[in-house]
Each structure stands twice: as C-alpha cells, then as structure tokens.
C-alpha cells in the first residue's frame, strides 16, 4: 500500500485539482491501495477543497469505488439475467467454497473479495466474471478452480 498523502498528491498532479479530477484520482488510489480508506478520502477532500461528506457521497454512488476494506483481488461475478441462466449460482458456490467466504465478504488475509456485479457486457459468453480488470468467460466449476487456483498460488 502506498503512502496516502504522497499518492494523492501525485495523482492530483497528474489529473488536476478540480472536482472533475475526482474519479480519476479515486481510481488511482484504488489501483494502489485496493479501496478508498477514510484517510484517503480526507486527503482527496483536502486536495480538491471539497467537503468530505460530498466526496464520500460520490464514492458511495459507484460500484467500483469501494469505501470499505477490499481485497487485493476483487472477483465480480455477473448476476444479470443471461449469466444467471447459464449457471451463475454454481460458479458462486465454487468460489465461496474455495475462498471460504460469502458474496460481499473479503478473505481474512485481504487477498480476495467476492462481489456481485451487474452486467459486464459478456452476456454471450456467460457465466462471466471479472477479477480486477481481467475477464473470464464461459465459466464452469472446473475452470473456476483453475483460474482461482492460479491467483491463490501466485498471490
């Protein structure tokens, strides 16, 4: 995890100090620190001279701007209708069993968070999921074991 103050300063130099720099700065923080901590949001509020409550209100609006502690790898399983039809629940069962957590939870070692997400535009290849920015399609229980196994081994 990067030092928050430095990171926010760096990001605001890159994206600017205006309100419209907010979302790029948030994304930059999440890339480095996995989520928006209280300290990070306060630092951004100070940097952009926007109220902290307002900053939080914006962050909490967006699904990908996590404001509570999340793991290094965020697994987002699509719950839209076509992925659901193609067997999403079996995939979730496999993931829950492997990670020993439920959807919405994060592993104790802060490596994995298991999340539901709405349509990720892979409806023709469902069930599908994202792990951070990478996508995985036509999932089966076996496939999930291989994919997740790689992550677990290389973490």
């Amino acid at each position: 995890m990067a030092e928050v103050k430095e990171l926010v300063k760096e990001l605001s130099e890159k994206y600017g100090n205006r309100r419209e720099s907010l979302i790029p700065i948030f994304q930059g923080i999440i890339d480095k620190n996995y989520y928006l901590s209280k300290e990070a949001m306060l630092e951004v509020a100070k940097q952009l001279d926007v109220s902290a409550a307002d900053i939080y209100g914006t962050a909490s609006f967006f699904s990908f701007l996590d404001t509570d502690a999340k793991g290094k790898y965020k697994i987002r399983i699509c719950k839209s209708i076509t992925c659901d039809m193609k067997g999403k629940s079996g995939i979730i069962a496999t993931l829950e069993e492997m990670l020993k957590i439920k959807v919405g939870e994060t592993t104790e070692d802060l490596m994995f968070s298991l999340l539901h997400t709405n349509c990720i535009g892979l409806c023709d290849q469902g069930p599908a999921m994202l792990i951070n920015d990478n996508y995985y399609t036509k999932l089966t229980a076996e496939k999930v074991r291989v994919i997740l196994g790689d992550y677990i081994r290389n973490k």
Binding site: R18, R19, E20, S21, L22, I23, P24, F26, Q27, L48, V50, G57, T58, F61, F62, S63, F64, L65, T117, N118, C119
Partner: peptide, 25 residues
C-alpha cells in the same frame, strides 16, 4: 478516455456528464 466507475444510470447522458464532473451520477 474517461473511465467510468460503475453505474448503469451513467449511460443517461446528463448523469454521465455529472459523473465526469466528479459528482454522483
């Protein structure tokens, strides 16, 4: 490129603009 942050309603053009301005979509 402006990268969104995950909100269906931001497909609505004024919500999209709000989010680009760093506000709730």
């Amino acid at each position: 490129i402006f990268l969104g942050a995950g909100a269906y309603v931001c497909g609505e053009e004024t919500a999209l603009i709000e989010s680009m301005e760093g506000k709730r979509g």
